[in-house]
Design a protein around this nucleic acid. Sequence first.
DNA 1: TTGAAAGCGCTAACAA
DNA 2: TTGTTAGCGCTTTCAA
Lengths: 343, 343
Amino acid sequence: MPKPGPRLRLVDVAERAGVSLATASRSLTGRDGVSEEVASRVRQVAAELGYVANPYARTLAGGASSSVGLVVHQVDDPYFSEIAGGVIQVAGEQGLMVQICHSGRDPHYELRQIRHLIAQRVGVIIIAGSGYNDPRIEAETKAELTAFQSLGGRVAVIGRHALGVDAVLPDNEAGGRALGAHLLDLGHRRIAVAAGTGGLTTVTDRMAGVLGALRDRGLDPAEMPVVHTDFTRDGGCRATERILRDHPDTTAIIALNDAMAMGVLSVLRGQKIPVPKRMSVVGFDDVSVAADLAPSLTTVRLPMTDLGRMALELALKPKSARARRRPTGHRLVVRDSTGPAPR
Amino acid sequence: MPKPGPRLRLVDVAERAGVSLATASRSLTGRDGVSEEVASRVRQVAAELGYVANPYARTLAGGASSSVGLVVHQVDDPYFSEIAGGVIQVAGEQGLMVQICHSGRDPHYELRQIRHLIAQRVGVIIIAGSGYNDPRIEAETKAELTAFQSLGGRVAVIGRHALGVDAVLPDNEAGGRALGAHLLDLGHRRIAVAAGTGGLTTVTDRMAGVLGALRDRGLDPAEMPVVHTDFTRDGGCRATERILRDHPDTTAIIALNDAMAMGVLSVLRGQKIPVPKRMSVVGFDDVSVAADLAPSLTTVRLPMTDLGRMALELALKPKSARARRRPTGHRLVVRDSTGPAPR
DNA sequence: TTGAAAGCGCTAACAA
DNA sequence: TTGTTAGCGCTTTCAA
């Protein structure tokens, strides 16, 4: 890897403005102890020269780290790319850089990435995406983040609750409940669930909502088939095949995210099973393509871009004594993939 | 923003290993001048202690910058998120961090982002996304990148040819030609184009291919309606409305990317115009949802993830005397959105 | 092959 | 309000 070249330094600016290094530094960092008159002259000179501080020197000297580490399961999954978009927007407004990395839905790999970000001395860490139902790994992650925070780092997470840090919490349970209620209202009684991997808390939470909806109507949740596969389009395909094979009389499939729902629709299309005439399908998230699928997908809308924005905004606020929680709303969006139960 | 906290330093490792700072540094950076015996002992100790070098200190001291700057138009556009996925994959394999930023399809803003990345002392810059048909801004960008390279920085671009740097070049023109030929083969003669903003070279190149296909058959390109709108889903909607209004006898619409094609399909669906029975539609890129649209989209497949991978791999190679060019193939993927011209 | 010491460009005590 | 100066943790001459 290349070396950085010689560039404009703060001394150059200071000299040109006829002040000391310290005064120049104070002027540009907006610290007080400088007369506004001098400060603005320095800023002026810096701007003219096109000076930009060397972040490495600045950080090393004990200044602020100006980068944000963002951990997503996979950036080319629309759910995460929309969140990333929100984070990058806010970062851009604040002049911060965003360092992005993948966790690949592997808790150990995720922990490694987090450690790497900390070693890289980012100032803020945002973790997007489901937590894991494994208390040991969550505890390890929590310990790492706590240590990071105690050294002055800031953390916010999206959709995880077990980490003891500021969190933006999409309403997974209520969303699941809304989905279940919607199908029950349409008269469906033989509903199957294409669920993601059992190890993900998002799956658990959404599932809890669905089960709650059944209980609300006095139905027995135990009778509902739940198929656990990957929390991806491909997982949706495989789950659907299993559902069609083992429970051929199913009239509605709940996919616990839109990616899975796309897999569900794809298999149904392949098997020429009409949606929603013979089978209703719902998803969760409302990624931007959900409206363009055929049939367009009934789903629960989560404001992903805002989730990303809120998370970074939360992390950038002065630290509070205890972890803040920002619940986010959800909205059932009824489209063409759901209809009355057949017969 | 927080300060970095006290952490393990190289001196600690050196002390623990019973060597000097210099030797420890040499051992860990793999530089020679150390006996293999000592070096491996130092590495061992570092590993035990979980030591990770402070990148700020390392870079400041004239070492290598280990981060990659990635500029995309918009990360929540599937085309770019897939490219980003590829870049992040390779970066992960090499232990590099990826700093991502948006250009928002604005050449001036893009240039600002590039300058910011350079100021941040990234070692590598990858620019994804169309160039601009404005020679002045391209020249400015080129100058900036050239200066960056002459200071040891590495650059690679995806889908831009005017920058004089290593480039991965998707076959836009041949892809456009394939699309045109496909529709002509199906008997379409009244074809309209939903093109992106005229200022983008990608639009120009794909358009050139389409026009070439017409000329190949001895048809007059001048007769084909071309509507320029934003290179997005929304632009596709607006273009379609204009096409339907001004050229109601059109039998096929070529959208110059899949995002626009999704807008096209959406408007046609809204107006109950059957696809492909009454109107054929094609896109370009083959983003992963293209196969899940209804009808599934005929398009030109570009290997986006590979584009991202190749770009970073190219940038990481030792610099060559002149700019390298890696053309990438394309493949027409015929799905359900195209059919014979009506009557 | 190893070590001592001089910076890299900046911030933050401390002094004036 | 301003300036002087001592580091931040590392790499890299230069000497040994």
